[in-house]
Design a protein around this nucleic acid. Structure first.
Lengths: 192, 192
DNA sequence: TGCTAAAACTAATGTCATTAGTTATTATAA
DNA sequence: TTATAATAACTAATGACATTAGTTTTAGCA
């Protein structure tokens, strides 16, 4: 065969993302990745420093893409419309990029500053969206936690195949979001 | 040393549960379990047929405990009170049994009938609770999906350490549940 | 007291991650 | 154009783990 295939980190991440999309993050091993790239596992160390670092890079890529898509979708929107768009964009990202979404959830030491920054950007954008919706201070934090729970739970259960009934998932998603936003409106107006 | 320590499946699962509670499901290996039990890994095969079966047994135990606790807590309750109790019991189980909770989520081939039965019992109980709350048919299915999303998302994010702000988690939980139930009430009354 | 089932063991194989050290290719500079 | 230096990919080797085969030994029972 031909030595010098010309790998680089981007190519590794592309292939790893495909593997993760298909078989889940746990199916991404240096062996499976090397196999997919027609290379021996040790060769991968020329481009990434081991499996934990590969997973970390996957999470960083996932966060960059996720934050970028959210920023684009939310540009110029406010209030109710922005919040709804946030919800749908969140689920769309998780559906279209299951491997990256999973890596964002599972990967990372608590001390990893770069990863933390990416995650904080995500939460901040949620907080801004909720803030422009009329909630502030602790109420905003509670609201963001509720929204994240709802969206991550849906994304995670849907991916697991946990919703088995023959009833439309998109309709469930729409109703769930409506239900929660309606409740938030009531919270805001009751002032507590 | 002393051969014949007297292991059995229950002891294995106790120890595996402890390991999973501490380091997550992925930290439960036959090697770590054997180490904890002062035994060589192959000895474990006298009591359980490999790592996948150990994880499956963990999930079955988790489901039995989860379903049992829910049944006990919900006995004699109806409507709003039952639904609230369901929510708090769900989160309490996930908090008190993080290893078992994780195994219930992650483990299982789709064809595993016993596992499927345990999961269906869980969903059925949610459906009954929602049903007695006044929602039926497709509306009940949507409501159950929303509730499961909210609760699983919260449990999962809390366990990940994803809620970092210095604001009370129990207060967030209470508000989140109130918000969703309020929205459900509105849905029921709007008739859609 | 001796026999049998089975609990725990040792030995061995295969997969994976990782490290060390080698080969050979590409790019660059004389 | 050719020699050199950096480095991509390699082979070989080690150590952790899961698993299987085959052995020892104990506990319980006839």
């Amino acid at each position: 065969m031909s030595p010098r295939i010309g790998l680089d980190l981007g190519t590794l991440l592309d292939a790893a993302t495909e593997l993760a999309d298909q078989g889940g993050l746990e199916s991404v091993t240096l062996a499976s990745l090397a196999g997919k790239l027609n290379v021996r596992s040790p060769s991968l160390y020329n481009h990434v420093n081991g499996l934990p670092e590969l997973r970390r890079q996957l999470a960083l890529r996932g966060l960059a893409l996720f934050n970028g898509q959210l920023a684009k979708q939310l540009a110029g929107l406010y209030g109710d419309e922005a919040l709804r768009r946030f919800c749908y964009a969140y689920i769309a990202f998780a559906r279209e990029n299951p491997g990256l979404y999973e890596s964002v959830q599972l990967v990372g030491e608590p001390e990893d500053a770069e990863l933390k920054a990416g995650k904080e950007e995500l939460v901040s954008r949620a907080a801004e969206t909720v803030g422009a919706y009329g909630l502030e201070g602790e109420a905003a934090i509670h609201a963001v936690r509720g929204l994240r729970s709802l969206l991550h739970g849906f994304a995670s259960l849907e991916r697991q195949g946990a919703f088995r009934m023959k009833v439309g998932l998109d309709e469930s998603l729409r109703l769930m979001i409506d239900t929660f936003l309606f409740g938030m409106k009531a919270m805001r107006e009751s002032g507590d």
